[in-house]
């Protein structure tokens, strides 16, 4: 507790950086991920989508420390590397959830729309996307949670996130530092997830 009070301003700074790089990496991952997710659910792109997701799935199975280090070898030290690796890390769940929930929409519903005279774009916007929102949301929540946790690793390439407290705490064997770092990361993750859940409930009244 003393540690927390004595270092409040530094912890606050680290927290802000932590949130900052999480958002800066997750937001583009969400936008591009949904776009790719839609693309991969179209008939002509399904096979390509499978290959793409397979490849990125393998990338994701590389431990985050190794992965961040790997990207670092190419792009060097700094915030750019951190954001890039988090971006790659979090885009997969978004694509995957978007594609799979789009593919699972019952054919009848789409055909009903078609039969009523909706064109392809209208079917996507008025029927397919709203009906797969639940899946898309769960992709977003997964990727955000992953990124909030993985952002701690960014410390190894010199971006000071909450990982710094944990890393130093580990080196000097300070249990209180480990606790403070871990708990704050967890609280951020829970808060964001809660926020998204609220948004989701508001949007999905019809379920």
């Amino acid at each position: 507790m003393n540690y927390l009070i004595n270092n409040l301003s530094e912890i606050l700074n680290l927290t802000l950086t932590h949130i900052y790089i999480t958002i800066l990496s997750t937001l583009p991952a969400i936008i591009l991920g949904i776009f790719l997710g839609i693309l991969f659910s179209r008939k002509n792109f399904i096979t390509f989508g499978k290959i793409f997701l397979g490849f990125f799935g393998i990338l994701q199975s590389i431990p985050s420390v190794a992965f961040v280090a790997l990207i670092f070898m190419y792009t060097g030290i700094g915030i750019k590397t951190a954001i890039l690796s988090l971006f790659v890390y979090s885009i997969v769940p978004v694509i995957y959830n978007t594609t799979s929930s789009l593919i699972l929409i019952p054919e009848d519903v789409i055909e009903a729309g078609k039969g009523m005279g909706l064109n392809k774009k209208e079917i996507l916007i008025k029927i397919e996307l709203p009906l797969s929102l639940k899946g898309i949301f769960s992709g977003i929540r997964t990727s955000l949670t992953i990124n909030i946790a993985t952002a701690t690793v960014a410390t190894v390439i010199g971006v000071d996130t909450l990982g710094k407290i944990i890393l130093i705490g580990l080196r000097v064997r300070r249990l209180d530092m480990l606790w403070v770092g871990g708990v704050i990361v967890a609280i951020i993750a829970i808060l964001f997830d809660f926020l998204l859940e609220k948004i989701e409930d508001k949007t999905l009244k019809w379920i």
């Binding site: 519903v109 039969g115 064109n119």
Partner: peptide, 28 residues
């Protein structure tokens, strides 16, 4: 598209859009 808009189409109940209210379904 215009052809279909001029022809009513009814299928089994699943064809209603679950995310639209009854009003929105009918007024589509």
């Amino acid at each position: 598209i215009n052809l279909r808009r001029g022809i009513g189409y009814v299928i089994q109940e699943i064809g209603l859009f679950p995310h639209y209210t009854i009003f929105d379904n009918i007024s589509l």
